[in-house]
Design a protein around this nucleic acid. Structure first.
Length: 494
RNA sequence: GGCCCCGUCGUCUAGUCUGGCCUAGGACACCAGGUUUUCAUCCUGGCGACUGGGGUUCAAAUCCCCACGGGGUCACCA
């Protein structure tokens, strides 16, 4: 179990509104959320919109909607408010400016009058010499009076952090002690020319203001951490605890990104992965319950989750296993749940209209029951049950199904004979089980093998080579459709 | 290239902190059987890993060192 923190647990997620929810953000959110819930703490959502050029207006809306769908409800942030408003970074610039002034005053920051052009040249030159590009600290030792005068004269400047010699240790809850030499830390820009603060600066200001106790984020941020710790120290504040989550990787072992295909949470929703499976699978990225149990609820996850148990190594995202897990959850659903989850896909596919579904939900559930074991994601349901809803005279015969029938020379006679045998039973209201038993007995009496009857029968009724139990299908289709389809089969398979 | 992180089956992982119970367990995928009228589900079995090398120790996947491999990051992006 985690050592209980002396202060209240307050974790946060800080997405920038530059797109939709990436799988990485979803996992980071889930872990933060679980940690907060486990410790009775709070999850704060803060929108990192300092880069006005890259921010996309609809993006925030999509992020909020996506997180709401996931069910990782935040306790403070956009939509719910909280004691540390505003929760948009861009609206907190007054605080940032104040903090920047203090840092400048105290000598922890200095004005840099270097032009973008000079900086670019510098970087190119250093790269050419195969050195790590970094600021050469030209303005670091400018006299304060000169600096003030040039600023007063209207000269443009950025504000840089003055990194002092020494070393900085990150006590990472996932990775243990990580030590950085301050000599390797650049005098990074805190405030851009023009007054816009940068990420590394505002993230510290805001985390401090919002009394964030633990920062759990992707490993790509590990190298930023010394900068941030140094800043906390300069501001005379205690830094939060850090925990850097292992990266989620693509097939090639590199950080999951757009070029790997589906990395947007929305895409998986649209494809119809079960939500509970999505949560469950995300929880298994870099964490496991006990090494045995794959399927577990969020309640169990929250109960068992501890940041110390998170893996250090990155994990390749296994789409195949994700689909398997979705199937596991699909099979666990009640028919009412399945109907609700499949409805959008049935409508989108054009198989059924909302009106048709509303008119007879029980009938639909009967159809869904036939498909439940055969799909992994909801979007597969329409094609799975389409044959049930097709017009009797428009059942599409798959090539393989028809070929199976044509192997049996006497298929037509068998179908005719069986129809004659079936008709009275059907009209007498026999159950699926009765029909099944009777059919098997009939096949024996006729001296036939099962495929001789069942392959032509399946083709006539469904047009497919495989599928649900024949007699469940007959029961669902009803007497009229069943007879009609067999009659048509007798013609079409001749 | 500098700095930092990581390294158990093809993949996700248990085991590593607290060395022995590990001839390394589970899951996905794959293969083979079983069940079924068929497909799927389900059940059984199989395949399959401690990156390498040195130490320390009675004993190392577990501790130490080195090598190798992979990744992250080096912006007035976040």
């Amino acid at each position: 179990m985690s050592s209980p923190s002396p202060k209240d647990v307050r974790v946060r997620i800080a997405p920038s509104p530059t797109g939709t929810i990436h799988l990485g953000l979803a996992r980071t959110t889930l872990f933060n959320w679980a940690y907060a819930r486990h410790h009775g703490g709070k999850l704060i959502l803060r929108i990192e919109d300092t880069d006005t050029d890259r921010s996309i207006p609809e993006s925030e809306e999509q992020i909020l909607e996506g997180l709401t769908w996931l069910g990782t409800q935040w306790d403070e942030g956009p939509g719910v408010g909280g004691p540390h408003e505003p929760y948009h970074q861009a609206q907190r610039v007054a605080n940032h400016t104040l903090a920047a002034d203090k840092l400048l005053e105290a000598g922890h920051a200095y004005r840099c009058f270097c032009s973008r052009e000079r900086l670019n040249d510098l970087r190119t030159a250093m790269e050419a010499k195969k050195e790590t590009p970094r600021y050469d600290r030209t303005c670091r030792d400018l006299e304060r009076a000169e600096s003030d005068a040039r600023a007063a004269a209207g000269e443009l400047f950025a504000l840089r952090f003055r990194v002092q010699p020494g070393e900085t240790v990150v006590n990472d809850l996932v990775r243990g002690k990580v030590t950085f030499q301050n000599a390797d830390v650049d005098d990074w820009v805190m405030v851009r020319q023009g007054g816009n603060p940068t990420y590394n600066f505002v993230v510290v200001c805001d985390d401090a203001d919002m009394q964030i106790s633990h920062v759990f984020r992707g490993e790509e941020h590990l190298v930023n951490t010394p900068k941030q710790i140094l800043l906390y120290q300069a501001m005379g504040l205690e830094a939060p605890e850090f925990g850097h989550l292992p990266l989620m990787l693509g097939k090639d072992g590199k950080k999951l990104s757009k070029r790997h295909g589906s990395v947007s949470l929305a895409l998986f929703r649209e494809a119809g992965y079960a939500k509970a499976a999505t949560l469950n699978f995300l929880a298994r990225q870099g964490w496991s319950l006990d090494g045995e149990t794959e399927i577990f609820s969020m309640e169990r996850f929250v109960e068992a989750f501890d940041i110390c148990d998170v893996n250090k190594a990155g994990s390749i995202f296994d789409y195949e296993k994700f689909a398997w897990m979705s199937g596991e959850y699909v099979r666990l659903e009640s028919l009412a749940e399945l109907r609700e989850n499949c409805t959008p896909f049935l409508i989108a596919s054009g198989l059924l209209s909302a009106e048709q579904i509303a008119a007879d939900p029980a009938r639909l559930e009967g159809a869904l029951a036939l498909g439940q074991d055969r799909i992994r994601i909801y979007s597969e349901m329409p094609e799975q049950i389409a044959f049930l809803y097709s017009a009797d005279d428009a059942v599409e015969y798959e090539e393989k199904a028809e070929a199976n029938c044509r192997k049996h020379a006497n298929r037509i006679q068998i179908l005719k004979d069986y129809l004659a045998f079936l008709r009275p039973a059907l009209e007498g209201g026999a159950s699926a089980q009765d029909l099944r038993t009777a059919a098997k007995a009939w096949v024996g009496e006729q001296g036939l093998k099962f495929p001789q009857l069942f392959q032509p029968l399946r083709c006539a009724l469904t047009g497919k080579a495989g599928g649900p139990d024949m007699f469940d299908i007959i029961a669902w289709l009803g007497t009229g459709s069943t007879i009609r389809r067999i009659e048509l089969g007798i013609e079409r398979l001749a």
